Simulated assay, not measured.
Amino acid sequence: MFSLLTLSSTLPAQAAPSVTSQGVIVNPYYTDLQAHLWLDRAGNTPDYASGEEIQFFTQVNEDAYVYLFNLDAYGRVDLILPNRFSAGAHFVQAGDQVAFPDQNDGFAFEVAPPRGLNQIILLASKTPLDLDRVADFRFGNTYRTSFADSPDEFVDKMSVVLSDVWDEDWVTDTVYYNIY
């Protein structure tokens, strides 16, 4: 069971994410890259009971690497994609609608406490991100990755990761859901 918690110069640009009032990291620079994220249930903030399965869908307008983070009701952030069990890479081709997990992954995401408002943050990047510098697998052989203990720590870590990425090469999207 997965407990869901609650982005031509010769020098790389320093993409510094900013934070919206909703706690979402955003690229403050214009980019042609677009990414859309949605859940398997309709509504602005669909409800899921603890133990129910949840599935995420994404589509990008340019080839991109997709990363999914879950921000739980307590403010903790887990990296949910990529993970150790996903059959496919987290690379998404332009125009494809992709489900996570998909039918070939052999596992499902189940929502679990804490109860309350959760947020899924999608970060799409034209280049792979080096999350090994900041991610922490704390839960043995599971696919849950503890990434940050607060939204501020999440933004700090993503600032490090995104410092090697061109400003126009990454974008975010977010969806909300409620666990009851």
Score class of each variant (00 low, 15 high):
G51P: 13
K126T: 06
G140F: 07
N141Q: 10
D164V: 01
F57R: 07
D149L: 07
R84I: 15
I121K: 05
D102S: 15
V26M: 12
P28R: 10
P113S: 12
Y74H: 07
L33C: 08
L117I: 11
Y29T: 12
A148R: 05
Q59E: 12
T172K: 00
N27S: 14
N83E: 12
I120Q: 07
I80G: 07
Q93C: 11
V161I: 02
T10K: 09
P128G: 00
H36T: 15
W170R: 02
K126M: 06
G43R: 06
R76M: 08
R41P: 10
Y176H: 11
A87H: 11
S125Y: 04
L129F: 05
R76V: 05
E52M: 11
D96R: 15
E110P: 08
E53Y: 06
L122T: 04
G51F: 09
D167Q: 12
L11S: 09
Q97F: 12
V134P: 03
Y177T: 05
Y177M: 07
H90F: 09
G106W: 04
A112S: 13
R84W: 09
I179F: 00
D167Y: 04
R84L: 13
L79K: 09
P82G: 11
V92C: 10
A49G: 08
S86D: 13
R144P: 00
L39N: 09
E168A: 10
V175C: 02
A135P: 00
P82A: 07
S125H: 05
